[in-house]
Design a protein around this nucleic acid. Structure first.
Lengths: 205, 205
DNA sequence: AAATTTAATTAAACACTGTTTAATAAAACA
DNA sequence: TGTTTTATTAAACAGTGTTTAATTAAATTT
């Protein structure tokens, strides 16, 4: 059936163009100020038609947040050339933080906004494969660190969670503007200084 | 002028009753689903009248977030009895995390939501005295730790920021539902395990 | 080729939202 | 009592996500 194939292709194309319009608007104005009507206007369709391709706004932003994980994953690929697991762990932290600071809205969507996660709870299978996958590479790296003699006396999972939380905490306090309004000695270097502080501690363990 | 005093008192009372209604609704339904009309309905005034007491919704939620800092500050008062600065630092962390996990919506408002901070930027003096004050007690405690010989080779501010970020990261990943959807070995103990992991590290420094 | 069925699209409506404006009611002052 | 200030409100504005029913277009069957 060639016709069914073409129709499927066309449907996929329109779905993709909705997502492209949504991403464009979202990167310009943020999630809250990107409305279904805005997206519909941009692709020159009616607002209602979008609901034939996505069940609701949350699904659109869940799809966008997947693109964010793809982009982050690509940046992480340079880690393949870092042999020492401790060096790799540090490089992961640097890349993670650079990604967050260079793409604050995307990071916000991936790790702070409730929209993408709320969509999971509306589905039957509510496992966050993007996040779980990313956490797993961190867990593996830290596991290898332990195998190499680092982090003696520490359990993999709590330590992985704690380190993730540290970098997430630093960038999310920034993205949600809790740093600009505190008089740090070096406001726009505080994230890097904090990261250096973390590195120093990891070396001591 | 007794009349002016009474008027001021009455104005303050109505302002307080708006805040009380707002807090009640906010704790029941969250910020986004608490509307000006909801608040107005509860105090039996028209929606427009609220704008004689608050310039906008952000100011209401900024006022509520102040109440959160008050509550957190009160919980922190038991720290006065902890002499050793390292013990005090750990107790601070425990109290901080317990407060966040027991009052997730209030914590969200204080440290994640943009509403209270956006209100600061609409004012002339945009310093976040609540947050800066809280951070300062952390900074002082860590400064005392360094005086007592802990954290050798570390700078106060980056270290304080990093430790704040760690606890903030752990609770905010929970509050924004990034933990429930990852298959941790012990999902509802992961925050405590992460905190224990942090304590272990602090002891090693 | 014509009739029927299926799928895509849309206009309109629903029930909301924060905020502003202009009119009204109430209180205080002269 | 008349005037001014203050408080309150109804109504409107310009939006929001989402649903429904009607319409148009396309594909399939007769």
């Amino acid at each position: 059936m060639g016709i069914a194939d073409r129709k499927e292709r066309e449907k996929e194309e329109l779905r993709a163009s909705i997502l492209e319009a949504a991403r464009k608007l979202f990167l310009e104005k943020g999630v809250e100020k990107t409305s279904i009507r805005n997206i519909a206007d941009l692709i020159e369709y009616s607002p209602g038609s979008i609901y034939h391709y996505f069940r609701d706004k949350n699904e659109i932003f869940h799809a966008l947040h997947q693109g964010g994980f793809q982009a982050l994953g690509e940046k992480m690929q340079v880690l393949g050339s870092v042999q020492n697991p401790m060096e790799r762990l540090k490089a992961m932290g640097s890349i993670y933080i650079r990604f967050a600071m260079e793409n604050p809205d995307m990071y916000d969507l991936m790790f702070i906004k409730e929209a993408p996660i709320d969509h999971l709870y509306d589905q039957e299978h509510c496992d966050w494969k993007e996040g779980a996958g990313a956490f797993d590479t961190l867990r593996q790296t830290i596991s290898q660190c332990i195998d190499h003699g680092y982090f003696k006396g520490h359990d993999v999972e709590p330590l992985s969670y704690m380190i993730w939380s540290t970098v997430h905490g630093m960038v999310s306090l920034n993205i949600r503007k809790r740093c600009e309004v505190i008089d740090f000695e070096d406001k726009d270097q505080i994230v890097n200084l904090g990261l250096q502080s973390l590195f120093k501690i990891l070396d001591q363990l």
